[in-house]
Design a binder for these strands. Sequence first.
DNA 1: GGGGGCAATTGCCAAATGACAAAAAATGAA
DNA 2: TTCATTTTTTGTCATTTGGCAATTGCCCCC
Lengths: 189, 189
Amino acid sequence: MQELIAYLLQFGYLDPTQRELILSKARWKSIARGAYFSEAGKISREIGYVTDGVFRVCYYDKIGDGFTRYFVYENRFVVDMNSFRDELPSAEYIEAVTDCQVLAFSKEDFTELSAIIPGWHDIFFKITSYVLENKLRYTSNMLVQDAQTRYLHFLEHYPGLSNRVPLNMLASYLGITPSSLSRIRKSIR
Amino acid sequence: MQELIAYLLQFGYLDPTQRELILSKARWKSIARGAYFSEAGKISREIGYVTDGVFRVCYYDKIGDGFTRYFVYENRFVVDMNSFRDELPSAEYIEAVTDCQVLAFSKEDFTELSAIIPGWHDIFFKITSYVLENKLRYTSNMLVQDAQTRYLHFLEHYPGLSNRVPLNMLASYLGITPSSLSRIRKSIR
DNA sequence: GGGGGCAATTGCCAAATGACAAAAAATGAA
DNA sequence: TTCATTTTTTGTCATTTGGCAATTGCCCCC
């Protein structure tokens, strides 16, 4: 649980009392592989700090094909922020790609913490805008790269992750077909 | 200037006194086509509400080719949030694609407003996370579409914008070559 | 240990896109 | 207006990637 505190401290100061308070609100939660942390159409009332496992944020087309928008893994927050913030239905799914463990905060506890801890809101503003900006920069960068470059950048930027997620989920994240990704892997070996 | 207030009110309530206060801090600023609102390596100390014109957020590679990450146009805030928030050097440029008019707030005034107006921080959290989430969803969607689909979605999603930005900037935003975009346009007519 | 089912690989061919170069059109400056 | 510069269009060809289908490999469950 100290990892959570360490992560938060990167974005703003919290005194020991505040740290205790935060940890007292956190609830352990397990999500089995294939289960959802958040579902399209439902309101996401929890924000989770991932301590173990990999999630993917994804949506499905009419045929049922799933498209991975991005992965969330250890020591990052997982949440559908638009849904959590305004209590509106989610537009997509957050699915556990592996068995996952998270430290979860309910919307009520989260709101209570922001009322009690002056810097709370600031910290989450920083985390949210920082993480989203970076994801957006990374993603728009991918658009101008070819398939192999995208894959190599992925390997570099997310070391180890390629072995933890199925090829087809990684392929849709990279915006290529599973066959192409398989061929790229072959050509690199 | 009422457009700015109307925009803010979409994200949270502000009483008449607060509205006055906000407008009293806003400064008109003109940016000529080709000039920068924010530059790579420099700290972005202003946030602007665009009342006229189109900006692009972009970066340059070693050869000097520019890549457009996204456009910002009327009735949206333009800012390098990572730089503005933490007073760190920008990673990219914000360039005026047409002559632009913005209502600008200095970092000092912005900070002062957040000290005086309780909802200020909340409003900008909503704007930032909402806008970035949507951009990210839009961009990762583009990754799995072919060039023509991306262009058609752009036309639909940003009506009129395609006539206001040069083809080569639009092409790099779409992640295709100028030649390809030209051919796509031809095939649609 | 042996299917059954899903995931990944591979082959083949077609379609999409890029690279490069040249021509045409548009733009801006004098 | 005229000229120079930049942007856009177009042609040709090479490369990349996708689509489809068959095969192989892997994992899980009985």
